[in-house]
């Protein structure tokens, strides 16, 4: 099951990943990070397809995308 790890240390709550996720499974958490931002979160890991779009648009390199075996290969980056 692919998924994403959002590093709260880097996330500045810019919401770009939330708006660009094709599966619409990212949202802004209510919890404030120690840097004073609401960070993004993955609220439905089951529907993540590992497409890496969230990581692409993230200006702060806060997102790591993982997968187990199968890979989403529609584009190479």
């Amino acid at each position: 099951m692919p998924g994403v790890i959002i590093d709260k240390g880097y996330c500045k709550g810019c919401e770009l990943c939330v708006k660009s996720c094709p599966q619409q499974i990212l949202s802004m958490s209510k919890e404030i990070t120690n840097r004073g931002y609401f960070s993004a979160q993955l609220h439905d890991p089951s529907r993540c397809i590992g497409c890496r779009i969230c990581a692409l648009v993230c200006p702060d390199g806060a997102i790591t995308v993982v997968s187990h075996g199968q890979r989403y290969e529609l584009y190479d980056y």
Binding site: P2, G3, I5, D7, Y10, G50, R52, A55, L56, G61, A62, I63, T64, V65, V66, S67, H68, G69, R71, Y72, Y77
Partner: peptide, 13 residues
């Protein structure tokens, strides 16, 4: 993430 999770996108070193 269980053990055979494999990163397909990382923050570049």
């Amino acid at each position: 993430m269980n053990e055979n999770a494999q990163a397909v996108f990382n923050r570049p070193q």
